[in-house]
Simulated scan of single mutants.
Amino acid sequence: MTQLDRAETGQGSAGLRDTGSGTWRARIRRTIRVGSRPGPWKRGPVLAALALLLGLLMLLHTKITDYGGLGSLVETFLPWFGLFVPVLLAGALRRRSASAVVALLLPVTVWLSLFGGLLRDKSRPGGDLIVASHNVGADNPDPTGTARDLAASGADVLALEEITPQAKPLYEQGLAKTYPYHTVQGTVGLWSKVPLSDSGPVDIKQDAGPLGDTKPDAVKMTYNRALRTTVATEQGSLAVYVAHLGSVRVLPGTGFWTDSRDRNAKALAEAVAAEPNERVVLLGDLNGTMDDRAFDDLTSQLHSAQDEAGDGFGFSYPAKFPVARIDQILLRGVEPTSSWVLPATGSDHLPVAARISW
């Protein structure tokens, strides 16, 4: 090949030098890039910070301000914050961030300390009485079917909330054969296989309603949302409260509105504190979880059957896709041996039940 041919094909000495020079420059650039890339402990600082914030939020949830109901809202859905852990873990693994993975130990530890005990079945054999509670729903399209299902549940004592005047005779008729004793006070009622006594309404400071405080006693009873009665069991008398606390709402400009519910909870706690019977069961739709600070006055006196003898979280609302347990069975002076959620009825709540022992 002549010198001219080599020049035309780019294979001269200058071309070879240019090619070698370009290769070395490329190697140097790659070395610089590798050398400047942060190590695994410096990658993903944002992910690490988010993991720490998640852990601190769950750890210090009681310190969150309740302005606009923010604290109550966080505590209502507190168990679900654990879902952020696998999301952050996936991001940490993608970024190969050792610092983010280590930071995730905080939320994992906090979540397990708060809710890890609910992941195992704590039920045990035995028990003297089965109690159940169900918000039957004012819009329930099938009260008769709901009564039939509840009568077959095996409960000895059955509390119902949100009983409308139209549905009341249907529940009374459907439950009469199984439960010869019952009391209905306003929108709440209790059906029992054993005798009841001293039944009456409990003033939980519900909203006055459109008629205000001047409405007649008969009309007041229509809006009554709590009762107290004594159940005569073979083991002794048991004070039973049934309550349906005020609803919560997410309102524009107001936030998580819980005023009515919180006022009801405080009044109910005062009634329980004044109860002379050592053995007490509270059944009802409390429109909140027991992690919510609004129930501190109640949980300081009563313990949850689901927390002590349940299997899982026992979510009860909404029935189609339960995300929170707002239907509660709380106890004092008796012990739960098991707690569970019953199958769905025509209501938007699921019934809850517990077996208790003296």
Score class of each variant (00 low, 15 high):
M1I: 07
W24K: 10
R25M: 13
A26W: 11
R27V: 12
R33E: 15
P38A: 13
R43S: 11
A48C: 10
A49L: 15
L50T: 04
L50E: 05
G55V: 10
Y67C: 00
G71E: 05
S72G: 15
G82W: 04
P86K: 12
L88Y: 08
A92F: 02
L93Q: 09
R94H: 15
R95H: 11
A98M: 14
L105M: 13
V108F: 06
V108S: 13
V108K: 00
S113K: 02
G116L: 12
G126T: 05
D128H: 10
D128R: 03
S133K: 04
A155V: 06
L160V: 07
P165K: 08
Y171K: 09
Y179D: 01
Y179A: 00
V184S: 06
Q185V: 09
V188H: 02
W191A: 05
S199M: 02
P201L: 06
V202H: 01
D203M: 06
I204D: 04
K215T: 07
D217T: 11
T230P: 01
E234C: 00
G236N: 14
S247Y: 06
V248D: 01
V250E: 05
T254M: 10
W257F: 14
D259A: 15
S260A: 15
D262Y: 02
A269I: 06
A273E: 15
E275G: 03
L286W: 03
A294N: 03
F315D: 08
F321I: 03
V323S: 04
L330T: 04
P336Y: 03
T337F: 04
W340D: 13
H349G: 07
